[in-house]
Nucleic acid binder design. Sequence first.
DNA 1: TCTGGGGTCCTAGGACCC
DNA 2: TCTGGGGTCCTAGGACCC
Length: 427
Amino acid sequence: MKREMYPKNGRVILHVDMNSFYASVEMAYDASLKGKPLAIAGNPEERRGIIVTCSYEARRFGVKTTMPLWEAKKLCPQLIVKKPNFNRYRTVSMAMFEVLRQFTPLVEPVSIDEGYLDITDSFELGTPIEIAKSIQNRILEQLDLPCSIGIAPNKFLAKTASDMKKPLGITILRKRDIQAVLWPLATNEMHGVGVKTAEKLQTIGILTIGDLANANELQLKSLLGINGIRLKERANGKDDRPVDPEAIEEFKSIGNSTTLPRDVTNQQELFHVLESLAETVSIRMKRKNVLAATIGITIRYKDRKTITRSKRLANPISSKEEFADKAKQLFLKNWSGDPVRLLGITGFDLVEHDHAYKQLDLFSYEKEAQKEPLLHTLSNLREKYGKHIIESAGLHQVDSKDDVGTATSFNKDFLRSFPHHSEEKEK
DNA sequence: TCTGGGGTCCTAGGACCC
DNA sequence: TCTGGGGTCCTAGGACCC
């Protein structure tokens, strides 16, 4: 019954956006900061001195996110500056999402300080506005933090709406408001349109969201690819993306990068940095119980020119040593020798540890092979165990003629890299 | 005195296979 | 002898967002 009414009534989506989150958290911890121009920024001595977030009081002086600290101080000499305390922000963020889940389990966190709620079926809690007010009050009372909330029939409009009144705003954006409210805005006001896209759109005479909503699709497609089509749909208020509470669990990559306090040309020194990055990535991978099937590095030079290089691996990795090792190899192969400003390591193509374990377990293969010698051919292995296991074992590198030899000899070395198995084998 | 660090998604070309 | 068109994988880079 409810389902049948669904398309008729549409969905009710909330977008909750914390106002200047890091700065607000610091103010909640230290009330003496309230009402003052406050900025969260890194250490300028380490060349990390950019504004990460700032209070509304600071914004009044023209201080903005990503502005270098010295520039912000010039605009606002009395600016109070704090270093970011990410652990604190993560803790508070978790508490904030717990508050949201008191209203519905359909909560999708999108970043540390914003998330979507689908309250279509939560009408017993009140009207959408009443629910939004209640959420806003509870976050303010329990955590001493301000947020803005957008109410709309889909994610895009809810996100747009939450942006319209800050701080502590609640904004409804209905389909029928689009033409009057959304269309007059410049294209770069739109979520998904940055500087480059706005520039491109300008070349074909599209300046406002309204222009975009009525633009020629073929023209958009040739200019921006599939993204052009999507932007036009959004400009018309169309967005079918569901609110997915699981989305946050499905990460695609884990990385760590750092700007060096000064430009470095010494290889040993750069290797040390890679080792420390490898350790961070490894710890985070293990905490999330995943392995990386592809490793990537980032090198930014003195002139800010940045290159990325990646390598798909025969065996998924997660240990600090493996990350450091592979990263160093990639680095040596691609480093120009010029002074380096930033280094980064990222793991891609993440696989669940347990899953990888299963795929890498070759005991069952050995048993099967005894029963059925023909299994030793590459194609049979592939068919029987899937592509992944073969590549994990390094078999893809050998000619199929050599499969038999390799298949019998790779086992030991291969299994040795897994402590659990090598123990059993060696004892 | 310039411009952090964490991500996602898309594109495009070459290799390789059928 | 000359030749196609589709599909997937891998890699590099760009755009965008918070």
